[in-house]
Amino acid sequence: MDTEVYNTLRVQKRKPRKSKLERTTGIIFIIPLFIFLTAFTFFPAVYSFVISLFHYDPFFHSIYPVGFSNYISVMKSAAFLKSVENVLIYTAVVVSVQTFLAFGFAMLFNRASKISRLARAIVFIPAVVSPVSMSIIFLWVFSNAGLVNFVLSFFGVPPRNWLYSTTFAFPAIMAMNIFSTAPYFMIVYSAGLQSIPTEVLDAAMIDGIRSGLARFRHIYFPMLRFSTILVVILGVTGAMQLFDQIYVITDGGPARSTYVPLMFIYNRTFVYTGEIGVAAAASFILFVIIMLLTIAQRRVITERRW
C-alpha cells in the first residue's frame, strides 16, 4: 500500500519534469524548419504582395509606392490576358487527358507479374527526368527530321516543324507534358487500386457485377473518387505553373501562341526593366486564380456524388 502510494506520487512528481523536457525538445526540433519556412516561403509570400504595390526597379534605385496601379496594368495587358487564356486551355486539355490516361495505365499495370512491374517502371521514367531534358528530347521529336515526321512519312504526310506553327506548337507541348505527367499520376491511382479490398471485388462478382463496364460504374469509380480528386487538383495546380518547357522550347512563341502567365512574370522581371512590381502583381493574380480553382474543385467534387 505504502509503496503503491509512493509510486503514484513519484510518477506524478516526475511527469511534469519529463514533459517540460519534451516540450523544449519539440520546440528546438521545429526551429530550423520554421527559420527556413519563414525566410523562404512565408516572407516571400508577403513580400510578393508588398512589391506588387510598388514601382520597383532596384537597378536604378527607383522604388516608390503606386497603389494598385500594377494590378490595373496587368489586367489591361493583352499579353497577360492571352497568357491566362492559354494556360486555362492548356489546363483543361492536359488535366482531362492525363487523368484518363493515368487511370488507364494504373489499371493496365495493376498486376503482380514481372512484366507489369517492369513496364510500369519504364513508363514512369519521364516523371523522374527533368522537364528541361524532356524538352530537349521533344524539341527533336517535333523537329523537321524528328520522330513525329518520321512516323507520319509512312502515311504520306509531308514533314513540317511542329514547333514553329501557331496552330501546332501548343498542342505539341501539351502532348509532351501528358506523356511525362500521366505516369506520375498513375502512381496515385495504383495506390488507390491497391487499397480496394479483394473482398469487394468478390462480393461484386457474387452480386452479378461482372462486365467491365458495370465494374467501373459500381466499384472503381466510387472507390477511386479520392484518388481522382487528388489527381485533378494536383494536375490543375501543376498545369497552371507551366514554365520550364515553354521557356526551353518556344519562349512563348510563335506569336504568343504558347505564352503562359509564368512566362509573362519572368519576362517582366528579367527582360523589361523596372517592371518587377508588375511581375509581382501578376504573380499574386496567378496565385489567386490557382487558389480559386482549387477551392472550386473541392466544392464541386465533394458535393457531387457519383
Binding site: 519556412l37 516561403t41 505553373q241 512574370i265 496565385f287
Partner: peptide
C-alpha cells in the same frame, strides 16, 4: 502552417524570393 505552405506554389513567390 506547414501544411499551408503546400498551397503556395514556389513559382508564384519566386519573384519575391529573387528580390529578397
Amino acid at each position: 502552417a506547414v501544411l499551408a505552405t503546400l498551397m503556395i506554389p514556389f513559382p508564384v513567390i519566386s519573384i519575391a524570393s529573387y528580390v529578397f
